[in-house]
Write a protein that binds this DNA or RNA. Structure first.
Lengths: 219, 219
DNA sequence: GGGCTTCCTCACGCTTCCCTCACGGCCCCG
DNA sequence: CGGGGCCGTGAGGGAAGCGTGAGGAAGCCC
């Protein structure tokens, strides 16, 4: 199982087929409209997304643009019946990472997904967060001033999610589903923000009132 | 100029053409064999690599595999005359990030390179308002002089409406119905103009007496 | 088994924000 | 120059969102 995959496809035949075929190697989820897709991404988080270019209402391209605008960095593969050059260019420039023309073979789709989600840079050196250095594998975080602080498993997982995309603001629901797979109480998020802030410093995690939390120093 | 690009291509006609065409947006370098390509990568570092699948001696696929084995994470686009499915799958599984079949159009090659090297984590540029830069999603506004100011939800929504059409003068009623869906008191508009002016500077929003408000830069 | 850490829930209290209102100043017109 | 409509500004009530401490349940190590 390579991770979580979202498919945004309104074709009532192709959608379910893709979902079922790819279910062999992915935890797949299917949505039939761009709006539903955005909702899903913002509240759950995926490792890859397949988007049909032609969707009822908001198009696949607009969907991609909206997600990129919201700083969602998840790899996106765009799917289309149109093989024209300018369509492909437009799709890629909207923010898609790859482009596949229908009809396609599932084996190629699988290979492209694998290529998109491969992670070549698994840093062991740690991630910089403000003046701190976070070591996900060692579950600790260093400061040049106050030294090293050990984190618990959940604290480290929580911070890792935020650190994966430092510029992005994560909603409460996203964090909840990303860190706590079973539906925990929403206030748990606040508690762990509190723990991390107490262990490090108050400004490590920023509150965006009404939206969620994000890392670091906007000032 | 998007960065440094390495082309590994032995075709004495196609290689130089690619190098010259892509030189418009990349600092390009050309190598004619896999071995020379590996040398170049290990000693220089690039932001993207184009590899022909068919090369004299060591193949493009082996080249990719070797680079990945050495933990080189640079995005690689593979190029080939072979359009067969199993070739494409093999190329991607070797570690290439994308695959383009000859003959191709340069515009698509460019678009795919752009897609491969795009950095989603860089902060978006925001909307310019006078000397300020407004970031709707982050709910903040930057000034080169006084730094960043955080806005509340309603303040940001209010400013977003004005910024959508910077040249337009918005009536009080329009702003009221656009920002405050339920019919709020008309003076609320004045209050939020006031909040925004206090947080930024007096000239950010201009009063058009008898008509409404518009964004700065009067002339 | 006892004491410790960790994980998660809950409820109280506080901060922040939203919106209203009333007063006072400014501008333009008569 | 005086008056009336417009607009700016400060204070404040109410509510939503968030922070924080206490505490119970479960696992771990002695």
């Amino acid at each position: 199982m390579s991770g979580r995959l979202l498919i945004v496809e309104d074709d009532p035949r192709l959608g379910p087929i893709m979902r079922d075929v790819l279910a062999a190697s992915w935890e797949t989820e299917l949505r039939a409209s761009a709006e539903a897709g955005i909702d899903a991404v913002l509240s759950h988080g995926y490792d890859a997304i397949i988007v049909d270019r032609r969707l009822p209402g908001m198009s696949g391209e607009e969907l991609v643009r909206e997600l990129r605008r919201r700083k969602v960095g998840t790899p996106i593969l765009m799917l289309t019946a149109l093989g024209e050059l300018h369509d492909r260019v437009a799709g890629l420039d909207a923010g898609a990472n790859d482009y596949l023309v229908k009809p396609f073979e599932f084996e190629e789709l699988s290979a492209r997904l694998r290529a998109l989600t491969r992670d070549y840079t698994r840093p062991d050196e740690g991630v910089a967060i403000g003046s701190w250095t976070f070591h996900p594998l060692d579950q600790c975080i260093d400061s040049p001033y106050t030294g090293r602080v050990l984190l618990t498993e959940v604290e480290a997982a929580f911070l890792a999610v935020l650190a994966a995309e430092p510029e992005r603001t994560f909603s409460r629901e996203y964090l909840l589903s990303a860190v706590f797979p079973r539906g925990e109480s929403p206030t748990t998020v606040e508690t762990y923000v509190h723990y991390l802030r107490r262990k490090t410093d108050r400004d490590l995690i920023q509150t965006i009132r009404g939206s969620g939390y994000r890392l670091g120093t906007p000032a």
